[in-house]
């Protein structure tokens, strides 16, 4: 008997799924989606690279200054964002999608 209610609710409620990829849900505000860097503020100190648990970041000062992220290694933990002394790393809400 109890299930009758559930059946009716299921019949007349909106589907639980979305017509992905046509309809996409907005990411939640606090979601950790992907890492972004503001290269102007970065001082290439390499702290993020040293602390990253997944070895996803490579920083080099010589010959040219570079900061690279291997998106396929990054586990999006956000630890680098916390330790960066210049606070130039941020978490974006949308997920990284392979091009």
């Amino acid at each position: 008997m109890t299930f009758l209610n559930a059946i009716f609710r299921n019949l007349f409620s909106r589907p639980a799924t979305r017509r992905y990829p046509f309809v996409k849900r907005e990411p939640f505000p606090g979601t950790r989606g992907q890492l972004a860097i503001d290269p102007d503020r970065c001082i290439y100190c390499g702290i993020c690279a040293k602390r990253c648990p997944a070895n996803a970041i490579t920083v080099s000062k010589t010959p040219s200054k570079s900061w690279t992220l291997d998106n396929y290694r990054c586990v999006i933990c956000g630890y680098c964002v916390e330790v960066c002394p210049k606070k130039c790393l941020t978490m974006k809400q949308d997920y990284f999608s392979p091009k």
Binding site: F28, G30, T31, R32, V75, I76, C77, G78, E82, M91
Partner: peptide, 23 residues
């Protein structure tokens, strides 16, 4: 979904750190 709202990730919350929580 609730975990994503509160912790920022759906399963791998990454919220526990030595000494407490991160968020």
């Amino acid at each position: 979904d609730l975990m994503e709202v509160t912790a920022g990730a759906r399963i791998m919350l990454g919220m526990c750190c030595v000494g407490g929580v991160r968020r």
